[in-house]
Every structure is written in structure tokens, then in C-alpha cells.
Amino acid sequence: MTITRLADLADPAKTPRLVVKVGSALLVGKDGQPNRAWLEALCEEIAQARKRGQQVIVVSSGAIALGAAKLGLARGGRSNLADAQAAAAVGQIALAGLWSQLLGKCGLTAAQLLVTLEDLDDRRRYLNAAATIGKLLQAGAVPVINENDSVATEEIRFGDNDRLAARAAQAARADAVVLLSDIDGLYDRDPADPDARMLPLVEGVTRDIHDMATGGSSSGLGSGGMTSKLQAAEIAERAGIVLAIINGTHVRPFERAFQHDRGTLFLPRRNDGALKSWLGGRQRMKGVLVVDTGCAKALAKGGSLLATGITLIEGDFRRGDPVAVRDAQGRALGQGLVEYDADEIARIKGYRSEELQALLGYSPRSAVIHRDQLVLL
């Protein structure tokens, strides 16, 4: 059954598994204290979804904001990385306790999962996380996922929980993701503009859609903005997952959005399968391969990346590492897992397949990146 409107996200036949992302600005007030009444109502909505037969996964921000208030740190604990990590270490306890208590009042068991970008970029750890989420849902628990900000460095951070929610949805094989925002959805320009128009439906995130977004977080508490939400929609759509943005500032936000059909629904144009959706959602690449025009055209038609089309190599990587593929103008074409080390590719780039054995000293592999290990962006 196909999801075509926001109300379908409350239909267990169309959306049996749902991911809900809650941002810091909704969960924590300006005084650094949790918005308990709002959160209690949200937990009641989660419990209602469970009674309808839906499984729910929560991706929750708020640890840094809660911890910063307890420690008396400036700028909500975001002045520097050390402050953020210290605030998160304190706030994670408070956040987990809050979800456990309030979901418990609704008869639900909360389970905490703390992850870093590295956890979901590594294939084995990604599969382990997926198995854990699956077991928790099978056991009737509500997984509450957050970035492990107390140990994550700038190099291994998601940076916002919008993209984490999309990656968690991929791992959980969810049907849809709902991002609770401080506005009703995606507008065609700055929402402060009186002529701004909200888009109720988006079929695939294009360059024109990205141009509508702004990158900042209006609250000052979170780290995301509309740009990060569009990036999350792109990650979700690679796995055929629907994503919605609705206004979370109202009490019982799901009830309001579904009854009044108020929000933006992103419908995927593709479904890359488990491996390719994981690969396409990776944020860190070990290197870059620049290709010529002929190679770019062959990739667009579903071909593998061959040595003859490579013009430039960047980075130090090994066989099996993820690398980005770009054209001569620097535009991102795709990303995939390479079949050769960087120094080997440096020796064979620009050469035809029949010439590679003499250059390498062994029988060459079928491609530098096979089409089965390559996802187009």
C-alpha cells in the first residue's frame, strides 16, 4: 500500500514502522528545563500509534541543552566541543530518564541507543545497530536514539539529528520519518516573506528544492535547519522511505498535522535497496575520483566505473573504502566502494581494460567501482 498523504502516516497498513525526530527547541525550554506537558502529550500520541499497531522509533535531541542548564554553561553548551561533550554527558542521563518516565506512564518501555556517525558509516556496526533496533521493536520497546555527543568529535559527528533520523530509518527499514519542526513545512522562500507558500507535496529533492531552503536553526538550541531536513529527505528516499516535516510547536502535533493535512510530505522517487541506500547515506568519503564526460554519461546509464574514464585521484584510500565520484566541474555524481588502492588507481587511470594486467602485474578486476557497489546521487 502506498503513502500519498500525511494521514497515511497514522495508518498501520501503510506505515507499520515510523521514526519520529524531536529537536532540542521543542523538548527543552529557554530556561533549560524540559517541556514536560508538551512531551507528555507527544508520548500519549506515540502510545496511540502503538495501540493502532504501529511500531515507533524516536530520535531525540536535547541532551546538550539539558546538561548545559545543569552545568551552567553559556550558549546552551555549544560554545566549543569540550562544553558540548561535557553537557551531553550530564544531559544524556536526564534525557533518558525523561523518556523512560513519560513513556512508562503510557505503559511503554523506553530503550536508549547512543550512536556516532562512525557507527552507522561502518557496515558491520550499522548492521549491529539495525539488529538491535529490530529486536527492541519485536520485544515491544520504543527505541530512543540520540547522537553520542559526549564522545563524538567534529570528524565523526552527524551534526544534527535530522540526518541521524533518516539513517536510523534506513537501518530500521522504517516506512516513514516525521521531523517535528518549528514551522509547518517547506516553503518556497523564507517563511517570513508574506508571499511564501508552503509545499504540501515534494516528489524527490531536486536542486530547485534545495534552493528554497535556509541553513540556520531559528531557535539557537539545535544544530539543524531546513537544509539538513532536505538532506535527510534525500537519505530517506534512497531507501524508498517517505519523510514528512510537520509543526511540532503545538500540543499533540500529529493530531493537528494529520487532521488538517498540514505539513510537507516528501515522496521518494527511488528505492536503492539495503546496500546502496546505506552507501548513499554515508557522509564521509575516503577519497575522490574525478571522471571525464564519457565516463559520466556511462555511469548515468548504469555502467561501472572503469579506469579509462578516471582523470584525477584525491585522497589515500584502500580497496573496499568508500570514495566520491565527481565530474570535471566538481559536481557530485555518486559514491561507491573501490576495488583498488589509491596508488594502484594512480597507475591505471586513463588506460583501457586490456592494458591493466601489464601495468598491475596481475589479472585486473572488472571495474574500479562495480555498478553494484556504486550509488548515483
Rank of each mutant, 00 (worst) to 15 (best):
A168Y: 04
R318Q: 14
R352G: 01
D343E: 07
E118L: 11
A324Y: 02
I64A: 05
F254Y: 10
A358L: 10
F254N: 01
A328I: 08
L376S: 06
L71W: 02
A25V: 05
L356P: 02
L377I: 08
L9N: 05
V151K: 09
A244W: 02
H210L: 14
A37R: 14
D83L: 08
I156S: 14
R331S: 09
G334V: 09
G77N: 02
N247Q: 04
D184G: 08
V177H: 00
R36V: 15
N35H: 10
Q48C: 05
Q138T: 14
P194W: 12
G185Q: 06
E344A: 12
G280P: 00
L337G: 07
A196D: 13
V202N: 10
E147P: 09
I348Q: 04
D8A: 07
Q357P: 00
E314M: 00
K70M: 08
L333H: 00
A233E: 10
D211C: 10
G224E: 03
C43S: 06
R270I: 11
D8H: 15
L120S: 06
A192D: 15
L73V: 10
A174V: 03
E355H: 02
R123N: 03
V22S: 12
F254R: 08
G224K: 04
V178L: 08
R319W: 09
Q335S: 06
E147F: 03
G134M: 11
Q231W: 09
L137P: 04
S61A: 10
T264W: 14
L201Q: 13
L360E: 06
G76E: 03
D149R: 05
V338L: 04
Q373W: 14
G334M: 10
R36I: 15
